[in-house]
Computed example of a mutant assay.
Amino acid sequence: MNTSKMITQLKTIIPIVLGAAIYAFGLLYFIIPNHLMEGGVTGITVLLNYGFHIPTAISNLCINIPLFILGWKVLGSRQMIYTGVGIGAVTLFLWLFESLIDNGLFEPFKTEHDYILASLYAGVTLGAGLGIVFRFGGTTGGSDIIARICNRKFGWSMGQVILVVDIIIIGASLLFISKEKILYTFVAVYIASKVIDFIQEGAYRAKAFTIISDHGPDIADVITKEMDRGVTLIPAIGAYSKMAKHIVYCVVSRQEIRRLNSIVKAIDPRSFVIISDVHDVLGEGFREEKEE
């Protein structure tokens, strides 16, 4: 393996390992000490810990090994290599944090009354960890492998498979934890999903302007000269008037919204403007994508 290829792989593996560490931390620092739950196969490791005091690192590894082998055979090595990294990293950090807790070197957050705080922070840490892992092409194994296999073999929706697994596991948790804790768990799961989306879509958000006007070229010229932004003119025909016109498409930062609005209204007060959110904007004037 040449040096550049190794560096490229390290740029993927290191963030996956970091995300796995954050995820394991959230599980042992917020979820388990407060007897909350987690979805997916990880939820099984939590249940085994609650019911039989089995260390999460051991149960996580034992459950994921057969799933990983099955996934390797069905899905192939290319799809599973970073999943293997994720499983190994989560198991390693679960073992590390459990060892620190058992030896009194690490004090988890445990509360007797403020479970909403525990739920919020659990959602943020779990979501941040999983978001980083997913963003760099890895997974933590478990229900994700099951969902991929069901999708490949039976054509089932991955989202639906994961949802069914989550419902079964969280439902089974009623044998070990109260309904109140289940509701707090839903808060954590919801927050985690939002954090995952935020990391997946990118922290940078911009606005896309779609401007329908009889003075499209004039608007485009002013935007180009005064704002130094790229503009695309799209030929169009009005359905009612049958008149040819141009649609102006332009992406700007949030700080430039007011300025662009002013330019458009000054040139054509009757223009029709659609403003929409865009995520992860790449290109000149925004975030540049570096070549590997």
Rank of each mutant, 00 (worst) to 15 (best):
I237D: 02
A172V: 05
H53N: 11
F286S: 04
G285S: 07
H215D: 01
I267M: 07
T140N: 10
I58N: 05
T42S: 14
I234G: 00
I54R: 12
N2D: 15
L18W: 10
I116W: 13
D102W: 00
I170N: 10
D197S: 14
G155C: 03
C150N: 10
G171H: 12
A20K: 10
A147T: 06
A203I: 15
V281R: 02
T45C: 07
I146K: 01
G127L: 00
I65F: 00
L163S: 11
D280R: 08
F198K: 09
V252N: 05
G216V: 02
I162F: 03
G129W: 10
V222G: 02
D197T: 12
A128Q: 00
P217I: 02
S213I: 06
G283T: 08
V231G: 09
I223R: 00
G86C: 10
E292P: 13
T140A: 06
I168Y: 06
S99M: 04
I22F: 12
K242I: 04
L61C: 01
F93L: 11
V189K: 01
G155N: 01
I167L: 15
K242E: 12
E201H: 13
E289T: 11
D221A: 13
I65N: 03
A118H: 05
I14D: 07
P108G: 11
P269T: 00
M37K: 00
L75H: 01
V41A: 11
V124L: 13
F136Q: 12
L27Q: 03
I81R: 14
I32E: 07
R270S: 15
S59G: 07
I132W: 01
L36H: 05
G216Y: 13
L75S: 05
P217H: 08
I145T: 05
I199R: 09
T232P: 04
K207A: 12
V222N: 02
I263R: 11
I116G: 12
I63G: 08
R78W: 10
I237C: 11
G159V: 00
F272W: 11
I275P: 02
K179Y: 15
I116S: 11
I211F: 09
I149D: 06
